[in-house]
Computed example of a mutant assay.
Amino acid sequence: MLAVFLLSQGLTGAALVFRDEIEPLIHSELTVAPGPQRVSAQAMLDTVRAGHPEATVSRAEFPESPDQAVLFKLKTRQGGDQILLAVDPYRGTIVRDGGLSAWPTEWIFVLHEQLFLGPMGETVIGIEGLCLLFLGISGLVHWWPAKGRFSQGFRVKLDGSADTRWRTLHRAVGAGVSAVLILSAVTGALLVWKEPFRDALGTVTAVERKPTPKVAEETGRAMLPVDTLVASAQAAQGGAALQQLRFSSGERVVAVYLDGTHTVRPDGTSQIYYNAYDGRELGRYVAGELSGATEFIDWIYTVHIGLWGGVPTRLVMLIEGLLLAGLGLTGPWLWWSRAARRRRAQAARGATPAAQTR
Results as ranks from 00 to 15, higher is better:
A3E: 00
A3G: 02
L7N: 08
S8W: 06
T12F: 01
A15R: 07
I22T: 15
I22H: 06
I26C: 07
S28V: 09
E29Q: 13
V32T: 14
A33S: 14
P34Y: 09
G35L: 13
S40K: 07
S40A: 09
M44W: 01
T47R: 13
G51N: 06
P53K: 08
V57E: 08
S58F: 03
P63V: 06
P66H: 11
D67T: 03
A69T: 13
L71M: 13
G80L: 03
D81G: 05
P89F: 04
G92M: 09
I94R: 04
A102W: 04
T105H: 12
W107P: 06
I108V: 13
I108H: 00
F109C: 02
L111C: 01
H112S: 11
E113D: 14
L115T: 12
F116E: 07
P119T: 15
V124P: 02
L132H: 01
L133D: 00
V141R: 00
H142E: 00
W143G: 01
P145E: 04
G148P: 06
G148W: 02
R149K: 14
F150G: 12
L158H: 09
A162V: 15
T164F: 06
R167E: 05
H170M: 03
R171T: 00
G174C: 06
A175P: 04
A175Y: 10
A179Y: 00
A179R: 10
V180G: 00
I182R: 01
A185H: 02
T187Q: 11
T187R: 14
K194W: 08
P196D: 02
F197L: 13
A200V: 15
G202K: 06
G202A: 10
V207T: 05
V207Q: 13
E208P: 02
K210E: 11
E218L: 10
E218D: 11
G220D: 07
G220M: 13
R221L: 11
A222D: 15
V226F: 03
T228V: 12
A231P: 14
A231D: 15
S232C: 06
A233T: 07
A235D: 07
G239R: 05
A240Q: 15
A241K: 15
Q244K: 15
L245D: 07
V256M: 10
Y257R: 15
L258F: 08
T261L: 10
D267W: 09
S270D: 11
I272K: 09
Y274M: 12
D278Y: 05
D278E: 08
D278M: 04
D278V: 05
E281N: 01
L282Y: 11
V286Y: 07
A287I: 06
G292R: 10
A293P: 03
A293R: 08
A293H: 03
A293F: 13
V303N: 11
I305D: 02
I305N: 08
L307P: 01
L307I: 07
L307G: 09
W308E: 12
W308R: 04
T313I: 09
M317Y: 08
L323I: 03
G331S: 03
W333K: 02
S337P: 09
R343L: 08
A345E: 09
G350N: 12
T352D: 10
T352W: 15
A355H: 13
T357S: 14
R358H: 07
R358Q: 11
